[in-house]
Nucleic acid binder design. Structure first.
Lengths: 313, 313
DNA sequence: CCCAGTTATACCGATCCTGTATATCTGAGC
DNA sequence: GCTCAGATATACAGGATCGGTATAACTGGG
C-alpha cells in the first residue's frame, strides 16, 4: 500500500519488461522483481504473467493499472505543486483542443490540471486551429493544442506526430493489415474538415503534389458528424486512429493505414505571447499537457510519436 | 512522496491534533511529529500552525488536503478491491439518493465506487424516499440512501442524523447565531417537499404535536426549485445545512438554527432483500457509502452525526 | 506562578529497500 | 534435441528510514 511500489508497477506495465523498467527507473532489476513480488503478495493477486520476453499484465494487473494510474498521477501533481505560488492562482483558464484530440486527451488532462492547480477553473473549448488561434489572439483562449502555426504573437512548440488512417463504415473493405495507397483516396468519396485544419491541408497538399483530384462530398467541422456520416456509409474519413478508437473497437467503423505516401498530422501547444497570467503559469500548464500526452503515448493508449521536448535549461 | 505520510497528514488534519491522531493511528506521538516535519521539508511548505491546543492547517496544508484526500482514497479502494471477485462484476448498479444529499455525497461517492469497482457502471437517480423505495421493490434501483423505512422487503440501516435549519433569502433576517423557535415557523410561509419525505413529516408531526398550524404556500420535490423560490423571497425552507452550503457561502441564502424543539433528519442505506447481485456486493457498496459519509462528516464538510455502524463480525 | 497539555528533540533497535552476484527459466535458431 | 541470449528469481549484505522510549521546550489557563 505504497506509492512507491505502485509507481514501479505502472512503469513495468508501460515497458512490458521488468528489465527495461529497472533501467528507466534507475534501480537494479532484482530489486524491482522483489517489489513486484511483494506487491503481489500484499494484494493477493498475480499482476504479471512472466514470459521469456518480458512480462504481461494479467486481468487483475490491468484492473489495478486502470484504477490507480489516474489517482497516483493526481497525487504526484498535487504534491509537486502544493508549494508553488502557481497553485494559488485563482482564475479561469481557457484551454482549446482540436476535436480529434479531445476524446483521448480531455479527461486525463483535466484530472491532472485540477490536481495541480486546485483554485483554477478549467474550461475546455473544442474548435479548429484557426478558431482557436483567433481566440488566443483575442485573449479569450489561454492555451491550446493546435496544428503548427507560424505567428509571432504566439509561442508554439511541437507536441507529437500522429499517423492518419483511412476510416470507413462497417461495410467497407478496410482492414488494419492492408494499407491503402494514397492514389486510392481519389477514387473514394471523402469527408474532410470544413475549415483549413492540419488534416485537411495535409490531405489536399499531398493530392495536389501527386496531381490527384479528390472527391469531397461532405465537409464538416464536427468530428461527431464526420463519424456518423462515415458510419452511415456516406464516405470515408482521414483521421488519426485515436480519434475513433472507441467506434472501431465497437465495430462501428473500420480502418486501414495509408501509404505512398503515408500521412501524418502534427500537434503542438500554443500560448499567447502577451499572457496576463502569473509568470510561468502557462509554461507549467503546457508542461502538464506534454506530460499527459507523453503518458498516454508511453502507455500505448495514444498511438503517436512524441516530438522532442523543450530544452530544459 | 509516500502515501504513508499523506495518510498521517490527513488524519492529523481531521483530528486537529498530532496527539489525538497518534492515538487513533496507533503510533507514538514523536514518530508522528517527525513524519510531519519530514513531509513539510519534502514539500518545502509549512502545513500546520502549531499551537498549545493542537495544530491548525495553513493555507498550503488546506490545499494539500483538498487535492490529495480524494485520490488517496481512490488508491486505497482500488488496492483493497483489486483482488476481490467483486471487482470483476460487470453490471450497471443503480443508486438512489435524496435530493438533499446529492450535492454533498454524489461526487465523492462515485469517485470511490468507480475506484473500487471499475467494471461497474454506476447510475445515480435523485428522488424522494417513496419513489426510491418503489424503485427498489420493482428492482429498478439497487441501493439507496433514504429516510428510515420499515419494510420487510428491504434491508435498512441507519447512516447519520443531520440537524435541520431554517433557510431564507438574502433579504431575510436569519442569522446563524440566533436560533429560531419552532413556533416561529408557523408565522412564516414554508416551502416543503411535495412528497411525504422525512423532512416534511418531521416538520408536520412536530407542528401537530405542538398544535401549530403551518403555512405551506408552495411545495415541490425539486430541491433546485425550492432553493430558487427561497432565493426569490417566496418563503422559507427547512433543510439540512449541507443541502444549501454553496448558496449560503455565495450569500444567496441565509439560515438560522431551529430550537424548541430542534429538528433533525435521519438518513440510512437500504437495499432490496432479494438482490440479483453477487453475494456481498451490495453489502460492500453499502460499506463504501458509509465510509464516504464518515469521511465527509469526519472532515467537517458534512455537519452531521454518524449513526453507530453495523456490527462487524 | 504553576500545571496540564501540547509539540519537538535525541537516541536506539528493527525493518525495509537497494545493489551485487548468481541461479533458473524460456523461447528462438540451428 | 541442444545451445544460447535474454528474461526473471533468489541470496546476502550494507544503508537508509521508521517507529518506540525518554525527555525537553513551549503555551494558555487557573
Amino acid at each position: 500500500m505504497d506509492t512507491h511500489r505502485l509507481r514501479y508497477f505502472l512503469r513495468i506495465a508501460d515497458e512490458g519488461s521488468i528489465n527495461r523498467a529497472a533501467n528507466t527507473l534507475g534501480i537494479a532489476q532484482p530489486a524491482l522483481s522483489r517489489q513486484v513480488r511483494l506487491l503481489e503478495e500484499d494484494l493477493g493477486v498475480t499482476l504479471f504473467r512472466r514470459t521469456a520476453r518480458g512480462v504481461q499484465l494479467t486481468e487483475e494487473g490491468e484492473r489495478l493499472r486502470a484504477t490507480t494510474a489516474a489517482p497516483l498521477r493526481q497525487l504526484e501533481l498535487a504534491m509537486r505543486y502544493v508549494g508553488s505560488p502557481l497553485a494559488r492562482v485563482e482564475r479561469g483558464l481557457h484551454i482549446g483542443l482540436p476535436a480529434t484530440a479531445t476524446g483521448i486527451l480531455a479527461s486525463p488532462l483535466l484530472d491532472g490540471l485540477s490536481a495541480a492547480f486546485p483554485r483554477v477553473d478549467f474550461q475546455i473549448s473544442v474548435a479548429s486551429t484557426d478558431v482557436l488561434v483567433e481566440g488566443m489572439l483575442k485573449g479569450a483562449v489561454d492555451i491550446s493544442v493546435i496544428d503548427p502555426v507560424q505567428d509571432g504573437r504566439l509561442f508554439y512548440h511541437d507536441l507529437l506526430v500522429e499517423d492518419l488512417v483511412l476510416v470507413g463504415g462497417r461495410t467497407s473493405d478496410l482492414q488494419p493489415g492492408t494499407a491503402i495507397e494514397f492514389a486510392e483516396l481519389a477514387r473514394r468519396p471523402l469527408i474532410l474538415p470544413a475549415s483549413p485544419s492540419g488534416i485537411r491541408t495535409s490531405v489536399e497538399n499531398t493530392a495536389l503534389r501527386l496531381k490527384h483530384r479528390l472527391q469531397s462530398r461532405f465537409s464538416t467541422d464536427s468530428l461527431q458528424v464526420t463519424k456518423s456520416l462515415i458510419e452511415a456509409g456516406r464516405g470515408y474519413g482521414v483521421l488519426p486512429l485515436s480519434a475513433c478508437a472507441a467506434e472501431i473497437d465497437a465495430r462501428k467503423l473500420r480502418y486501414a493505414p495509408l501509404c505512398d505516401p503515408s500521412l501524418t498530422r502534427q500537434l503542438g501547444v500554443a500560448v499567447t505571447a502577451n499572457l496576463e497570467l502569473p509568470r510561468g503559469f502557462a509554461t507549467r500548464v503546457g508542461e502538464i499537457i506534454r506530460e499527459e500526452a507523453a503518458r498516454l503515448v508511453g502507455s500505448g493508449v495514444w498511438g503517436a510519436r512524441l516530438s522532442p521536448p523543450l530544452s530544459e535549461a
